[in-house]
Amino acid sequence: MATTQNNQQELQEQLDALRKDFAELTSTLKEMTANYAREGEENVKAAAGQAQQQLKQSLCKAQQEVESRPYTSMAVAFGIGLLLGKLLDR
């Protein structure tokens, strides 16, 4: 009888240890997932900021080109519009 009680107690202790280990594993996985998501978000924000900066630079260059050569810019815009009109007309 004592052996059965000892076995039950030992089994209960092992189950408690297993529950504790599982809780720690779950907690660790939760932390790892949160860190991974945070890093991904930071990477996306950095890439978006860099793309936005490049877009601003490109727009600034285009604006400077138009301001320095207004008639050429109008002729190019007219030609592109004509070309697109012909392509879309078909």
Rank of each mutant, 00 (worst) to 15 (best):
Q57S: 06
A62F: 07
L59C: 09
E10D: 12
T3M: 04
C60P: 00
A47I: 04
E39H: 03
F78D: 10
S58M: 06
T28D: 02
K20T: 03
L83D: 03
T4K: 08
Q63I: 09
T72W: 05
C60A: 15
G79C: 13
M74P: 00
K30T: 11
D16N: 11
G79Q: 15
E31G: 02
G49D: 10
K56L: 02
L15R: 14
T72M: 10
A77Y: 05
N7C: 03
T26Q: 10
V66Y: 00
M74I: 12
S73G: 04
Q63T: 12
Q52A: 09
K20I: 01
N43V: 01
A62D: 08
E42L: 12
E39I: 03
A62W: 03
L55A: 11
Y36L: 13
D16H: 06
E10S: 11
E65V: 14
A75L: 10
G81E: 02
Q50K: 15
E39P: 00
A17K: 10
L29F: 15
V76N: 05
L59A: 07
Q54H: 09
Q57C: 01
V66W: 01
L29N: 13
A48C: 07
N7Y: 04
K45H: 09
C60V: 01
L18P: 00
T72V: 08
R69C: 04
K45Q: 15
Q5N: 10
L82C: 05
G40S: 06
V76Q: 05
N35L: 11
E39F: 04
A23S: 14
A34S: 11
E65D: 15
Y71T: 11
T4W: 03
E39V: 02
G79N: 13
A51G: 09
M74E: 15
K20D: 03
L18A: 13
T3Q: 05
Q54E: 15
S58K: 11
A75E: 12
I80Y: 04
A48L: 14
L82T: 09
F78E: 12
S27M: 02
Q64A: 15
F22V: 04
A23L: 05
A37Y: 03
A77S: 12
Q64K: 14
F22Y: 05
Y36R: 07
T33F: 07
E67G: 02
Q54T: 09
Y36Q: 14
T28E: 06
A2Y: 02
S68M: 06
F78A: 11
T72Q: 14
Y71N: 10
K45V: 02
N43E: 10
F22T: 06
I80N: 12
A51M: 11
N6M: 06
A47G: 01
Q5G: 03
E39N: 04
S58E: 15
N7L: 07
Q63N: 13
P70W: 01
L59R: 13
L11T: 05
P70V: 00
E10H: 09
Q5K: 11
T72I: 07
L55M: 08
R19N: 08
Y71W: 04
Q14L: 06
E41N: 12
N7A: 06
E31L: 08
Q64L: 10
N6Y: 07
A48T: 12
N7D: 10
Q53I: 00
G79W: 04
Q14C: 01
Q12K: 11
Q53H: 09
T72N: 09
E31S: 10
A47Q: 07
D16I: 04
G81N: 12
E13V: 02
N35E: 13
C60S: 13
A48Y: 03
